[in-house]
Write a protein that binds this DNA or RNA. Sequence first.
RNA 1: GCACCGUUCGUCUAGCCAGGUCAGGACGCCAGGUUUUCAUCCUGGUAACACGGGUUCAAAUCCCGUACGGUGUACCA
Length: 510
Amino acid sequence: MSDKNVRVRFAPSPTGPLHIGGVRTALYNYLFARKQGGKMILRIEDTDQTRFVPGAEEYIIEAFNWCGIEFDEGVINGGPYGPYRQSERKDIYRDYAEELIASGIAYYAFDTPEELSSIRQQYESEKKTFIYNYEERQKLRNSLTIDEKNVADLIGKGTPYVIRFKMPEDEMVVMDDLVRGRVEVNTKVLDDKILFKSDGMPTYHLANVMDDHLMEISHVIRGEEWLPSLPLHVMLYRAYGWDEPQFAHLPLLLKPEGNGKLSKRDGDRLGFPVFPLKWTDPKTKETSRGYREDGYFPEAFINMLALLGWNPGDERELFSMDDLVEAFSIERVGRSGSKFDPEKARWFNHQYLVTKGNEELADLFEPILTGKGIAAGKEKVSIVVGMVKERANFVTDLWDQSSFFFVAPAEFDQKAVKKRWKADSYEQMIELQKVLSGIDDFSSDNIEQTVKSWIEKKEYGMGMIMNAFRLLIVGALKGPHLFDIVALIGKEDTLQRIDFGLKTIGKKEA
RNA sequence: GCACCGUUCGUCUAGCCAGGUCAGGACGCCAGGUUUUCAUCCUGGUAACACGGGUUCAAAUCCCGUACGGUGUACCA
């Protein structure tokens, strides 16, 4: 039941790092395309030269690369509908805009930005809102109020002008949206949007509609912030006599607390990234953290993002990209904005971390160990990781959970000492040390058996001994099965740690 | 201001279109169990249909209104 020629696009502006809301929009496009057996296109909408930020496009591409979102056509790998950067398509827009003027659907306007802003100010002081519409355009400087000859003169003299859409005075525009259903707007509340700017570039509205048509985009899946301009876009398609694509306007990602759209500030304030990758602003040198650098797995990041505004309709929560493709449908996208929950993001990462193989995790952990000046064999690191990964959300947590496998404790958790280091502990640990030094087969099972039978024979309390023992070996009351730890660090190290602990903690007075 | 969109546990959400289960799941939190410790894990608990009308034998579900929120209202996208 898939449409024959599904073609979707993600069309960001290179004005800075890609926000996770944008990543989610791209993800839904990608899932939809894959599910329908269609094509996914990456187009760069750089019609505003003043907002261009160097490195932004590269960032966007790298981010998708990291996430595993792939494009069939676009600025990365080209394609038959190129170029895919709007600045490189500049020449084709003007003719289309002129065509609209010829058919009376658009007109030239000579009002300068300064004139317009002063009118706006004046209206505001009278508590009115200025909109450039069917009423106002009669009083302004445009090809509707100036005769043809003078318009030609003005243009001939190089007077800057823009091209505006002549919004009908009173017409119902009926639109259909895949997630919102039928939407109706009367054109009387709409304004004469600029289609073509005085700098020779089209605005988003024109460029976007034209390119979507020229690139044969079948479904426009984009953020809800575009819904208010949908009537204009639809009217443009109709004015050109083009088939409209199907539209789907996605709900926005909201900040975790309070109200409003998720922004970089929220991330900084609440301690989580708002961007997939770390970003350094080329001008201010200000940096923003990224999911990748914060230790998230791309699979977890994608999984988390996919479930923010979409759900499969059953109770599954863990999805690989392939699973998502299989389960995705645009009809199941929600209609209301989703507050981002950093806590659940961490949970997702944990889920992926524990299912990763120990060798793979060891490889990821290795650089951290090296940074601490530790050169442990891969085999040992794998074993250690296998023992502690349940306790970690991120690869970086692994060190806190396993440092004692690699370095002997230099100090001891004072609260634990207070709680578990009793008057008898000192003597008991000396005894234990003797028992341990007598063991030849220093395997976990054998040590356990030997120590336990010693405890039984002496009628010592199990908890009493084991907690004190753990304190000496680990430095705190945490970590995996203690006999596994001592077996791994070996007999010599174990005995040394007991020596050091005994010396450092000392004997507790009764 | 105006326009459009939205509103189910603290959060993500199922259920709504085709009215009729104690409104289900997950995260978080709390309690208990398991464990030599921490974590994992297991069990249980916590907590929601924004409000007001209407239609109906019956409304989270359909209709109207209100409130609240979001977005848009740029020669930005």
